[in-house]
Write a protein that binds this DNA or RNA. Structure first.
Lengths: 238, 238
DNA sequence: AATATTTCTAAACCAGTTCTTAAAATAAAT
DNA sequence: ATTTATTTTAAGAACTGGTTTAGAAATATT
């Protein structure tokens, strides 16, 4: 959950109509979600995407929710897991908590209550994150230019210049994806959490600011891929 | 809950037989508990005793569970609150979550499930507790300035000056994380337990107080990272 | 139990900075 | 040529931070 952007939720549910309802409900609450129809598919997705919460049906073909929950919990000790179940035998519920579930709801349930519980879990994990996380130092060196993201400054030949939070975030995104094309949409969602006309213009303003910084080195530049996005890349010396 | 000792639970329930059953169950699970028969009594007790979790019945004479929960949440932003309710209208449940409940169970419920949910909540809050309770020496020496956190005073060239509890706590947090950027949110959660508009401005007031103290040494300073937070750092000697 | 003292919060004000919007100029693609 | 995308500059809006102060709340003292 970068910045103020919406939480991203993994939704695994084999009953299509319920799944559609849930996906719609999550959207209305302002969350983004990724839907998977069974446990195997979900596990594949989970390995490659970052989620703020997992909403798992227990009874599913191929791999049931509990098994999936265990895999998820083993890989990520903190991501909140909420199980949905139809025929909740007490033992099944206890099994869920045993493998590290955070909450359990029995069908049929109130959508509003589900949303309330989701918010509780998200708030808790967010608080936990803030409590523990003191920004890991992020210092990059490009040519004779030092870029300190967490302390928000750049240093060029003993000349220290402060940069803003947004500049730092954008710069970090580029550095982490050096030589890769970042689409406008990716950048906008990552840094601003939204993608609309004005924010897109704003990005251009910030590209301009960043180019002035990057110019201090003469090895690297931000190049535009017309109609697509931008790329931080080594200059061609030809 | 100091490390290995059992969690201490506030149990508020006006139905005597259920209360007795719950108290017994908590004991079997290895928890200690304090029983109160109504909200008013519970609030008195809560103010003077430290609990790791609150188990509150919603329907009670004198002060209902929701009101009590709100008082508790205002005083302590972190202690987990679990509501028990007989006739759970959806709205009542939502009200509970609204005031900051962490979980909700509808009577009749499975004792085993209740215990599982209690353990989940305790586990989550444990992480934070551990972070708070990192034992560190309470006396620091920075340059010619001695800072005694537990006795709440600073000493500079034989000049002893008292500092307040909040000043001491904030100073300690900075010293423990010297040269690391602390976000406003992290600071607020640690020192004030909440992050809202007024508390945020309050932080600025205290930064101001602390800077006057820190100024007594000329090696160290509190610097602001615009839009992010603050950092206690060695002055740059350039 | 009343009073004094200290500490904390809320609020106002100002200064500084960062972000957004707008608009004009330039470049690329069809 | 014309449309669409990008670059650049700039003004003001919005936000963030620093400082002081008055009164509320909590704590200590008589």
């Amino acid at each position: 959950m970068t910045k103020d952007t919406a939480a991203h939720i993994l939704l695994v549910e084999d009953e299509k109509p319920l799944a559609a309802l849930l996906k719609e409900s999550l959207k209305l609450e302002g969350f983004t979600s990724r839907y998977c129809k069974d446990g195997e598919e979900a596990w594949d997705i989970f390995k490659s995407e970052k989620f703020d919460l997992c909403l798992l049906d227990v009874n599913m073909p191929k791999m049931n929710g509990i098994e999936l929950g265990k895999l998820i919990r083993d890989k990520d000790a903190f991501v909140p897991i909420l199980f949905l179940t139809a025929n909740s035998s007490e033992q099944e519920v206890l099994d869920g908590f045993e493998i590290g579930a955070d909450d359990y709801m029995t069908k049929p349930f109130s959508l509003k209550e589900l949303n309330a519980r989701i918010r509780v879990l998200l708030k808790r994990s967010q608080t936990q994150r803030n409590f523990i996380a003191t920004a890991t130092p992020e210092v990059f060196q490009i040519d004779n230019l030092t870029i300190d993201i967490s302390n928000q400054f750049i240093k060029h030949a003993d000349d220290i210049k402060k940069i803003s939070k947004t500049e730092a975030e954008l710069l970090k995104l580029f550095i982490q994806h050096k030589n890769q094309v970042l689409t406008r949409n990716t950048i906008l969602l990552h840094v601003w959490g939204r993608d609309d006309f004005y924010t897109a213009r704003n990005l251009d303003v910030y590209i301009n600011k960043l180019r002035k910084i990057i110019k201090l080195t003469d090895q690297t530049e931000i190049i535009n891929i017309h109609g697509t996005g931008f790329k931080l890349a080594d200059k061609l010396t030809s």
